[in-house]
Deep mutational scan, measured.
Amino acid sequence: MDETGKELVLALYDYQEKSPREVTMKKGDILTLLNSTNKDWWKVEVKITVNGKTYERQGAVPAAYVKKL
């Protein structure tokens, strides 16, 4: 869990989004888990830093590609 009490997951593999509802992640990324009720796809929040600014993006990733921490 992070400092706000939200559950975290670890990306076990790289994943490139294939639709606007998904998010890209790299192996080793730590993501915030938002919903894991679907056994195949979990909704997560990814933090992306671009030019020193951090953005948050929500989307789905394959459940088999992440592990709860």
Rank of each mutant, 00 (worst) to 15 (best):
E22M: 04
D40E: 11
D14N: 07
G28R: 03
Y13H: 11
E56M: 15
E56C: 15
L12H: 02
R57F: 08
T4C: 15
V61T: 02
G59M: 09
K18P: 02
P62E: 05
T4A: 12
L34Q: 01
E22W: 04
M1W: 14
Q16K: 11
E3R: 12
G52P: 00
Q16P: 04
M25C: 06
T24D: 02
L34K: 05
D2K: 12
V61G: 02
Y13M: 12
D14H: 04
V23Q: 03
E56T: 15
T32I: 15
E17R: 14
G28L: 03
S36P: 06
E45M: 13
V50Y: 09
G59V: 06
V61C: 07
G59P: 01
D40T: 12
R57T: 06
L31N: 00
E22H: 07
M25Y: 02
V61R: 00
I48F: 11
K27S: 06
L31H: 00
V44C: 03
E3Y: 13
L69D: 01
T32L: 14
R21D: 15
V9P: 00
Y15W: 10
W42N: 00
E56P: 13
K43R: 13
K26D: 01
V46E: 00
T4R: 12
V50E: 11
D2Y: 12
V23N: 01
P20L: 09
P20G: 08
Y55H: 09
T4E: 12
Q58E: 09
V44H: 00
L12Q: 02
T32F: 09
L33C: 06
L31K: 00
K39P: 13
Y13S: 08
V61Y: 02
V44M: 00
V23E: 03
T4W: 13
L34G: 01
L10R: 09
D2M: 14
E56S: 15
L31T: 00
E17I: 06
A60Q: 15
I48Q: 07
V23R: 02
N51M: 09
K53R: 12
I48E: 09
M1P: 13
K43P: 01
G52V: 03
Y55P: 01
V46P: 00
R21F: 15
N51E: 11
I48S: 06
L10C: 12
M1K: 14
G52Y: 06
K18N: 08
K18A: 09
K67C: 15
Y15H: 03
S19L: 05
T24I: 04
K43H: 15
E3G: 13
K47H: 11
V44Y: 01
K6E: 09
G5V: 13
Y65M: 11
Q58Y: 07
D14G: 04
D14V: 05
D29P: 00
K43I: 15
A63H: 03
G5T: 13
E3D: 13
E45P: 00
L34D: 01
G59D: 00
K27W: 04
K53P: 02
E3N: 14
P20T: 09
E45Y: 07
A11W: 04
R57M: 07
W42F: 06
D29W: 11
K6G: 10
P20W: 09
N51Y: 06
A60R: 15
E17T: 07
S19E: 06
M1S: 12
N51P: 03
L12I: 08
I48C: 12
E17M: 11
E3H: 14
D29H: 03
Y65F: 12
I48L: 11
P20I: 09
K47M: 11
V46R: 08
N51D: 14
T4S: 11
V46C: 10
M1T: 13
L8C: 14
D14R: 03
Q16D: 13
Y55G: 05
A63P: 05
G5E: 13
K43Q: 15
M1I: 12
D29G: 01
E3I: 14
L12F: 02
T24W: 05
R57Q: 05
T24M: 03
K39H: 09
E7S: 10
W41H: 01
V66F: 04
G59Y: 05
K67Q: 12
V44Q: 00
Q58D: 05
T4K: 13
K18Y: 03
A64K: 12
L33R: 00
L12V: 06
K26H: 09
K43E: 15
P20Y: 08
V23Y: 02
G52C: 09
I30G: 00
T24P: 06
T37C: 14
V44L: 01
K26V: 07
W42H: 01
L69A: 05
N35T: 06
I30P: 01
Q58S: 11
V61P: 00
E7K: 09
I48G: 05
T32Y: 09
L12C: 12
V46F: 07
A64S: 14
W42Y: 07
P62F: 06
I30H: 02
T32V: 15
E22I: 02
V66R: 00
V23A: 05
D2R: 10
Y65P: 04
K26E: 05
G59R: 01
V50L: 12
L12W: 03
K18C: 13
K43T: 15
T4F: 11
D2V: 14
V50K: 10
P62W: 06
V46D: 00
K18G: 06
L31E: 04
G5D: 10
Y15D: 02
E17H: 08
G5A: 13
P62N: 03
T32E: 06
V44K: 00
I48H: 08
I30V: 11
K67D: 06
P20E: 12
R57D: 03
G28H: 03
K27A: 12
G5Y: 12
T24C: 07
K27H: 05
Q16H: 12
A64L: 09
Y15S: 01
D29M: 12
P62L: 05
M25R: 01
D2T: 13
K47E: 08
G52W: 03
R57K: 14
L10W: 07
G28Y: 04
Y55C: 11
K47I: 13
L8F: 14
V61E: 01
G5W: 09
W41F: 07
R21C: 15
A63Q: 04
Q58R: 11
K68N: 05
W41T: 04
V50C: 12
Y13C: 15
K47T: 14
E45H: 07
I48A: 06
A64Q: 11
L31I: 06
K53D: 08
K53N: 11
L69K: 02
E56G: 11
A64C: 15
T24Q: 02
M1N: 13
E3K: 13
L12D: 00
E56D: 11
Y65E: 03
S36F: 06
T32A: 08
Q58F: 06
V9A: 09
T54Y: 08
L34F: 02
Q58A: 09
K47Y: 10
Y13L: 09
A63I: 04
Y13T: 07
S19Q: 06
R57V: 08
N35R: 06
N51A: 10
T49F: 11
S36H: 07
E45D: 02
K6W: 09
N38V: 04
K39A: 12
S19R: 06
K43M: 15
R21H: 14
R57G: 04
T32P: 13
V44N: 00
K47S: 12
T54N: 07
E45K: 10
S36W: 07
N38G: 10
T49R: 08
Y55R: 06
A11M: 03
P62M: 05
Y15T: 00
D14T: 05
K43L: 15
Y13D: 06
